[in-house]
Amino acid sequence: MDSERGVGVEELARAVGARPRNLATLLRYLAMLGAVTEGRDGFRLTESGALLRAGAPGSMRALALMYGGPFYESFAGLVHTVRTGQVAFDHLFGENHFDHFARDPQLAELFDQSMAAGSAMFDPVPAHPALTAAAEAPGGATVVDVAGGNGELLGRILAAHPSLNGVLLERPHAVEAARRRLEETGLGTRCAFVAGDFADMPAGGDVYVLSRILHDWDDERCREILRHCARAMPDHADLLVVERVLPCDGSVSLATAWDLHMMCNVGGRERHAAHYGRLFADAGLALVGRSPLPLDGNVLHVRKARSASA
Rank of each mutant, 00 (worst) to 15 (best):
G6K: 10
V125P: 05
D216T: 06
E38I: 08
I225T: 06
G94K: 10
D123R: 11
G69A: 08
D200A: 08
G55V: 03
L214R: 07
G166I: 03
H100A: 15
A308M: 13
G55N: 03
A310L: 14
G186W: 09
N22Q: 11
R271D: 01
I213H: 03
A135W: 05
C222I: 04
A88R: 04
E47F: 11
D123A: 15
R156G: 07
G55I: 04
E243T: 04
F75L: 11
V302F: 04
E10P: 02
G139F: 02
D218M: 08
H80R: 13
V242Q: 01
A62P: 01
Q106V: 15
A88S: 08
P162N: 03
A177M: 14
L107D: 08
D259C: 09
V36K: 08
M32N: 11
G42F: 05
A54N: 13
L285T: 00
R181Y: 06
V143C: 04
V9C: 00
A174F: 14
D238Q: 10
E136S: 15
R179E: 00
H97M: 14
R306D: 15
L169K: 06
V167H: 01
R103C: 01
A50I: 01
S114Y: 09
H261F: 12
S114H: 04
R21D: 11
M263S: 12
D282S: 09
F280G: 02
S163R: 15
R83G: 02
H301V: 12
G85P: 03
R14Y: 03
L27K: 00
V7M: 14
L154V: 00
H97L: 14
G68D: 09
E224V: 12
E47S: 10
V87H: 02
N22T: 09
R181C: 02
E183C: 00
D200C: 02
D219A: 14
L169M: 01
G6L: 14
I225Y: 08
H80Y: 13
A273M: 11
V125K: 04
A281H: 07
A137E: 03
D216Y: 13
L153Y: 04
R303D: 03
T37G: 09
A178S: 05
A54I: 12
E152G: 01
R212A: 13
L279E: 03
A133R: 10
H97F: 15
E170C: 01
A283S: 04
A308H: 12
E11I: 08
R21G: 10
L26P: 06
L279Y: 05
V194F: 02
S48M: 13
Y67P: 05
N298R: 09
P138A: 09
D216I: 11
V125I: 09
A257T: 13
H173L: 14
R231N: 11
S114R: 06
A76G: 14
N150Q: 15
L92G: 03
T189Q: 14
A24W: 12
A195I: 07
L164H: 04
R83A: 12
L279G: 06
E38C: 11
L246Y: 07
V242A: 04
V7Y: 12
E152V: 11
G6A: 09
A178H: 00
F43P: 05
A62H: 07
V241Q: 06
D145H: 00
A54L: 13
E73P: 10
Q86N: 11
P172C: 01
A281R: 08
E136H: 14
